[in-house]
Structures are given as structure tokens and as C-alpha cells.
């Protein structure tokens, strides 16, 4: 599973101080399940799809994002960096990541958010402080909390502790997952989940081979097992132009889903390229031929899938 999560690190200092590696908490999230929600984004993912618009979620360790257009060349980062990764040269800010340990000191000294620390260890209490701020909105809207990522299920121990705490407040919980792990990780979380939003990115093996680090059979088998548990499931597919935007691909997924007992909805989401700026900020290349499917094409695919499953 590579560098996605280190449980020993999370357990350091005892269970009461267990931490999760979180890269964002979004309030008033309205696309991540029913009602008004708070979405907790877990860092680290074992699928790392080529088109992902959250590249900062790939690895669990902290990373520095650099947005050059915000830099005012104050030089604070140059002064405070113990690894001497930052230089101001001829009116340009150069960030050499070679020796960067993502200690975050430069982000603390950057007052214009040109340098941003992505991902930090958070305790259950720290996450809950933000989650509980909007309880009244969850109650009024039928909303709640969504664990997303990255892949939240990979941080199993932390997820479990967080879920127990969320459920002790009687809040609705949704987990967004992409299924590439041993099933036991998800199984222990299910008693605390009201909804699973499960991503099936593709059916064809070749798409997995080319674009997705996850194991196709594991992902599809885990979904079948999940369906036997009685938890409502929404399956989602990001429709990526030039990858899986064909009737054949979407129909294959829809047919695979059609016998599910607990499938509430199959959702097709159009790919968007908004993640490019994040790739740049992490110093990563983002060259590809992906495109956003036309709305007509999306309607067509939705209509085809609708013959097999509720869309």
C-alpha cells in the first residue's frame, strides 16, 4: 500500500492521542451527501487516479503547496527554512523541494498564503471542534458529516475513533471511499456509517492498468461484499473524457451494479480540470488528454445507465 498511512505513527502517544492525517475540512459541503454537511478530507490514497483533482491527497505525509502568483518576495521563507529550500533570486522566488521535509515553518511565516501546508495530524477532538460548529444546520437540513479523501478507510483506526465520536452526537455519517483495501478495514467502520458513497472509476481492466493504481478485482469484490451489509450505498463514477466516457464502459458498470440490494443511486459526475493549479502548486506535472464530457453526452450516458440502475 506504499506510503499511504502509517498506523504506528498514528498510534504514537496512546489511543487517546491518535491522530489522522487531514488535508482539509470543508463546512457547508453540499455535494457530499444529503443536506448541509461538513466534509473531512483524509490525506493518502491507494488509487491515485491520473485525473484526480486533489493531488495533495495522494500521499499521507504533509506537503508544501506553493502558489507563485501570490508571492510578494518578502523573504520570510528564506530566513526561516532550516533546509535552505527557498531562494529569492533576481526578483524570483525559487522553491527547491529536494531537501524539503515539509516541516511547515515556511508556511507559518508566509502571510499571503503563497506557501501552504497540505495535511497535518489532527486529533479526534480537533476535528470534532469544527464538525460540531454546524450541528444545527445538519439537524435542519438532514445533513451531517462526510469522511472523504484521499481514502479515509486507509486510516482505519483514526476513522473508527472519529466515527464513534460523531455517532455519540447522533449525527448522520457518510463515507466516501474507492474500495482499494482489504475489506476488513471498511467492515469495522460500517456499524457507524449511515451511507457509503463508493467510487467505481471503471469496469475495464485496461483502464485500471493505465490510469488507476488500485486493484480492479479488490475494488469490485469489496463493493459486492459491502452490498450484503445492509448499509445504503451510492455508487459514483467520474466520467473522464478519453478514459471512461463511452457507453460501453458505463453500461458495463451499470450492469455490474444492477443486482445490488442496497444501491440507492448510481451517480455520474463529469470530470473537470480544476485540479491543474494544485498539481502546479505541488511541483507536479499535469499533462494529459482528459477533457470534460459535453452535457449532452453526460445525459446520454445517464439515460443508458438508467435502464439498469436508479440514476
Amino acid at each position: 500500500m506504499g506510503n499511504v498511512y502509517n498506523i504506528d505513527e498514528a498510534r504514537e502517544g496512546g489511543k487517546e492521542r491518535i491522530t489522522g492525517q487531514i488535508f482539509d475540512i470543508q463546512r457547508f459541503a453540499v455535494h457530499d451527501g444529503p443536506g448541509i454537511r461538513t466534509t473531512v478530507f483524509f490525506k493518502g490514497c491507494s488509487n491515485r487516479c491520473e485525473w484526480c483533482h486533489n493531488p495533495e491527497s495522494f500521499v499521507s505525509r504533509s506537503q508544501i503547496q506553493y502558489y507563485p502568483n501570490r508571492c510578494v518576495f518578502c523573504g520570510n521563507c528564506v530566513e526561516c527554512c532550516p533546509q535552505k529550500c527557498h531562494f529569492i533570486d533576481d526578483g524570483r522566488h525559487i522553491f527547491d523541494r529536494t531537501n524539503c521535509t515539509a516541516c511547515g515553518l515556511c508556511t507559518q511565516s508566509c502571510y499571503v498564503n503563497a506557501l501552504v501546508l497540505s495535511g497535518k495530524p489532527m486529533t479526534v477532538d480537533e476535528v470534532m471542534e469544527q464538525v460540531l460548529a454546524d450541528v444545527v444546520y445538519y439537524e435542519k437540513s438532514g445533513g451531517g458529516v462526510t469522511l472523504s479523501g484521499g481514502e479515509p478507510v486507509l486510516q482505519t483506526d483514526f476513522c473508527l475513533e472519529l466515527l464513534k465520536c460523531i455517532k455519540s452526537h447522533n449525527l448522520h455519517v457518510a463515507i466516501q471511499t474507492a474500495g482499494n483495501y482489504s475489506y476488513e478495514r471498511l467492515e469495522v467502520l460500517l456499524p457507524y456509517a449511515d451511507l457509503i458513497m463508493y467510487d467505481v472509476k471503471a469496469y475495464s481492466r485496461i483502464i485500471y492498468d493505465m490510469y488507476i493504481h488500485g486493484d480492479r478485482d479488490t475494488i469490485l469484490n469489496n463493493l459486492k461484499k459491502l452490498d450484503g451489509e445492509g448499509v445504503p450505498v451510492i455508487v459514483r463514477t467520474p466520467v473522464v473524457g478519453s478514459v471512461n466516457d463511452t457507453p460501453q464502459e458505463i453500461l458495463s458498470i451499470a450492469r455490474f451494479l444492477q443486482d445490488m440490494k442496497n444501491l440507492k443511486q448510481y451517480v455520474l459526475l463529469p470530470y473537470h480540470s480544476l485540479g491543474k493549479v494544485k498539481y502546479d502548486a505541488l511541483g507536479k506535472e499535469y499533462e494529459n488528454a482528459f477533457y470534460t464530457p459535453a452535457s449532452d453526452a453526460m445525459s446520454e450516458l445517464k439515460s443508458l445507465a438508467g435502464e439498469y440502475v436508479p440514476v
Binding site: I36, V136, K140, S141
Partner: peptide, 13 residues
């Protein structure tokens, strides 16, 4: 976001 219910809930809250 199909937001009518969301906005209503927001106002009520």
C-alpha cells in the same frame, strides 16, 4: 446542490 431545501434549512437554523 438542489439547494432550495438547503437554503430553507440554513435560514431556519
Amino acid at each position: 446542490m438542489g439547494g432550495k431545501e438547503i437554503i430553507k434549512a440554513y435560514i431556519k437554523a
